[in-house]
């Protein structure tokens, strides 16, 4: 696989569309975003309101820094482990305070975006792809935060925890796969 295609699946919609599709076709980032939003929904009001703004901001910042890096950061293993931990927090319904959750979410988004940006280095439409992915993250986080807003019926609280267990399970399997087939 040539370098331009290494981390972007051609959608025919240009780098912008490729960047948006990246979120769904290589969904480690998507699982992180969903996990953080679920944590925010389970936590208090300020988290749920600020996450849709914080995540794209941190993502674009981290991505821009990543684009300037000389080589790709190989962070798949720690990133997948972090997604599993986020899913576990959702399963356990740990209600993190905003002062903990928001910096945590920002730092995780920054780290993931750093790796994503460094992976796109050398791609002719890297900046547009990064922007497309940022917009996709903004849309996904906003839609999820709005549609999952409290008050939660009992079944929805359970559904959030089930989703957390799926995130953890998928990440654990991915973790095993990454250990078995190192990058």
């Amino acid at each position: 696989m040539s370098l331009p295609l290494a981390h972007l699946v051609p959608t025919g919609l240009g780098p912008w569309g490729d960047g948006m599709a990246r979120l769904f076709l290589e969904p480690t980032e998507l699982l992180l975003v969903i996990g953080l939003v679920l944590l925010g929904v389970q936590a208090r009001q300020p988290c749920r309101d600020r996450l849709p703004r914080l995540l794209p901001l941190a993502w674009s910042l981290g991505g821009l820094i990543g684009l300037t890096l000389p080589s790709e950061l190989l962070l798949a293993l720690p990133c997948t482990a972090l997604v599993a931990v986020v899913g576990l927090l959702v399963v356990l319904e740990v209600r993190l305070r905003p002062v903990v959750l928001l910096p945590l979410a920002g730092a995780l988004a920054l780290l993931f975006a750093l790796a994503a940006g460094s992976a796109l280095t050398g791609h002719p439409g890297a900046l547009a792809a990064l922007l497309g992915e940022t917009v996709a993250i903004a849309v996904v986080s906003t839609l999820l935060c709005q549609s999952l807003a409290p008050p939660h019926p009992r079944w929805r609280s359970i559904g959030l925890r089930v989703a957390g267990s799926w995130i953890t399970a998928a990440s654990l399997l991915m973790l095993g796969w990454l250990i078995r087939h190192p990058q």
Partner: peptide, 19 residues
């Protein structure tokens, strides 16, 4: 049970992947 099963199953999958 449906929350516990996938997570423990994935742990078993991890063991399988690690050989």
């Amino acid at each position: 049970l449906p929350v516990a099963f996938p997570m423990v199953m994935a742990f078993g999958g991890l063991l399988g992947l690690l050989g």
